[in-house]
Every structure is written in structure tokens, then in C-alpha cells.
């Protein structure tokens, strides 16, 4: 589904990713772990097409297509989703309208009729109930004045609506207390299925107890230095990243 090959990329002059390769198959959950500043978030930004980041080598194939050639909105419509670590606030734009706009863009892409506000409202209510969300979310401006936990829930709500093929969850547990984390993780688990894949980017192994990955990768200094299963995450829980950072 998603095939990253020898990917090199950076920001300005600095090369941050130094030849990453990763294959994600349908239904798989991958955990990408590593300390801050070693390229985890850069990887997610490259995948969604952030204009400030530059690819210097390698390639990414998504559903057999060259992902890197697509503009960001095309990548999204093809099924690439990023749940932001820091969701962006958009003052003045109503959250429900924003969600409907995104939903209808996807329908348009699939050559389906757009959904009118009333039908969409029903759909949205159902998804929000499923994520245990307050209906006030609909009335507010996109992410504006949301608490950290509310913003994260809003990200998962969008994921639930858009049903992406590959969802990248960037530090989805940061800023969440344990109850909110459980709700979010439960939501994500319900959304995971045989047809879609998850990339869970995290500094701490905690989230991986709630969303169990099939594969775990350790990203240090722009390289995947080790891959394994759930046991690797458990090992990191006790040892931390120190041993990886010392050895060059």
C-alpha cells in the first residue's frame, strides 16, 4: 500500500531523513519510535507534501502511484491522512462546515454526489457519538480555543469521516490524560481494519499499549536503526533510547 524507498529529505540545507525504507501493507499497524528531533515528524510532513520540506532522494509509492508527484490535496484524496501533533487553528471557519467540505471533496473524488448539510449533520452526529464527543464541537471554529485533548479528538473525528487508507498519527497521545487517551485509542482501534493501515509516530511507548502495532521501528538520526515487533516497544519502555544514541 505504502512503499518508502531510500527516502532522503530535509528542511532548508539540513538533511533530516537519510535514506529511510519502509513497507506498509493493508491492515498493518506500524509504530515509528524515536527521540524528538530525529526525523519522525519530518517523515510525516514529507508524506503529506509539506511545501517547506524538500525531498533530496529516494521515492514513495502509494497504491502503485508516485506519491511525491502529487500535490497535498491529491495525496489526501488518494487516502493519505495525517492526524496532526499540533492541529492548526482556523478562526472564523465553522468546524462542521469544514468537515462537510472535506467529506464532500472526498465524495467528489469518488464521483459521488455531495451530501447536503442536513444529511451530513446526521452522519456527523453518529461519528461524534462513536468518539464520545460533545456536540459543541460542531459550532466552534476549526480547532480554535480547543483544549489539547479536544484538538486530538477532532483529528480522530476527521479520520473517522474520511476513512483514509493510510493514517499517520503523529504523537496522538501528547497532551492527553489517561481517560482521553483511552477514548482516542478506542476510536482508532475501531477504525483500523483489514483495508487500511496505521503509522503511529510516538516518542513514548505508552500509546502502543492501547493501539497494538504489528511492527515497531526505531528512528534515530534520520535512519531506521532497528525494526521488530511489540517486544521492541516493550524493551524501549525499560531501556529508553540511550543505547541507540550512544552508539554511532
Amino acid at each position: 500500500m505504502l512503499e518508502i524507498k531510500e527516502l532522503r529529505a530535509g528542511y532548508g540545507e539540513a538533511e533530516i531523513l537519510k535514506g529511510i525504507s519502509l513497507t506498509v501493507k493493508p491492515g498493518e499497524i506500524h509504530g515509528i519510535m524515536g527521540p524528538n528531533g530525529h526525523g519522525k515528524s519530518t517523515m510525516s510532513k514529507i508524506l503529506i507534501g509539506h511545501p517547506a520540506y524538500t525531498v533530496t532522494g529516494g521515492g514513495v509509492t502509494f497504491n502503485g502511484k508516485n506519491l511525491l508527484e502529487m500535490p497535498p490535496e491529491k495525496r489526501a484524496l488518494e487516502g493519505m491522512f495525517l492526524a496532526y501533533q499540533y492541529p492548526v487553528e482556523i478562526p472564523g471557519v465553522n468546524n462542521a462546515e469544514f468537515l462537510r467540505m472535506a467529506y464532500n471533496e472526498k465524495r467528489k473524488h469518488e464521483k459521488l454526489e455531495p451530501v447536503d448539510p442536513l444529511d451530513f449533520d446526521e452522519l456527523l452526529n453518529a461519528k461524534m457519538k462513536f468518539l464520545n464527543m460533545d456536540s459543541r464541537f460542531k459550532e466552534r471554529a476549526v480547532n480554535e480555543g480547543f483544549s489539547g485533548g479536544e484538538k486530538k479528538k477532532n483529528e480522530i473525528l476527521q479520520m473517522a469521516l474520511l476513512e483514509p487508507k493510510v493514517a499517520i498519527l503523529d504523537e496522538i497521545d501528547s497532551g492527553l490524560d489517561i481517560d482521553a487517551l483511552k477514548v482516542v485509542a478506542e476510536g482508532v482501534n475501531k477504525l483500523a481494519g483489514p483495508g487500511n493501515s496505521l503509522l503511529i509516530i510516538t516518542h513514548y511507548p505508552r500509546i502502543l499499549q492501547y493501539i497494538k502495532p504489528h511492527h515497531v521501528h526505531v528512528l534515530i538520526r534520520g535512519n531506521i536503526v532497528r525494526s521488530g515487533g511489540m517486544d521492541l516497544a516493550e524493551e524501549l519502555e525499560t531501556t529508553g533510547y540511550d543505547s541507540y544514541l550512544k552508539g554511532k
Binding site: 490535496e73 491522512f81 495525517l82 471557519v93 471533496e105
Partner: peptide, 21 residues
């Protein structure tokens, strides 16, 4: 980019932000 990441083109994004403003 946030709009684009949700499948909404730049032009539509600008229009929406301005209308909100």
C-alpha cells in the same frame, strides 16, 4: 496545508478562510 491535507484545494481554502474573516 491543513485544508489540503483534508482534500480541500488551496483556492477553496483561501476562499473559506476569507469568508470566515
Amino acid at each position: 496545508l491543513y485544508f489540503q491535507q483534508r482534500g480541500i484545494g488551496k483556492e477553496e481554502a483561501i476562499r473559506t478562510i476569507l469568508n470566515g474573516f
